[in-house]
């Protein structure tokens, strides 16, 4: 086994452990934990058996397995980034609701 495979596997294993720890703390739903686990396990399979990426690449019409992994990674990262933007937007809206409530209450109390 190559050193890079060992490093990647250790990282993926740590991610898997962290995912289920967060799920146990109720910070992550069971469904979300399962989806994340699939992602980490899929990554581990590609690290251990790089030829599986070639199978996937041939299936979707991309020349090399490495390219296919890269494309999928970019799509996943963009999706996750957009999710973070949505979450920030939601937090922003919640903050506004709080600020508005305080403003209306203060005005009510001043009368």
């Amino acid at each position: 086994m190559l050193i890079i495979q060992l490093i990647l596997l250790a990282g993926l294993l740590a991610a898997l452990a962290l995912t289920w720890r967060r799920a146990r703390q109720d910070a992550l739903t069971r469904r979300a934990a399962l989806l994340w686990s699939l992602l980490w396990i899929g990554g581990a399979v590609v690290v251990l058996r790089p030829e599986t990426a070639n199978l996937f690449a041939n299936l979707v019409g991309v020349g090399r397995g490495t390219d296919a992994v890269l494309y999928v990674a970019v799509i996943v990262l963009f999706y996750l980034l957009f999710r973070i933007f949505l979450r920030l937007d939601k937090l922003d809206r919640d903050l506004t609701k709080l600020v508005r409530r305080v403003a209306l209450d203060e005005h009510e109390n001043r009368k």
């Binding site: 508005r100 403003a103 005005h107």
Partner: peptide
């Protein structure tokens, strides 16, 4: 009547606060 947002939330947010107050 003057209402105060503790932190800047934007024109749309301020208009909504003022509109709710006006309705009340």
């Amino acid at each position: 009547r003057v209402l105060r947002h503790a932190i800047n939330r934007g024109q749309g947010a301020a208009l909504k606060t003022g509109t709710l107050c006006a309705l009340s």
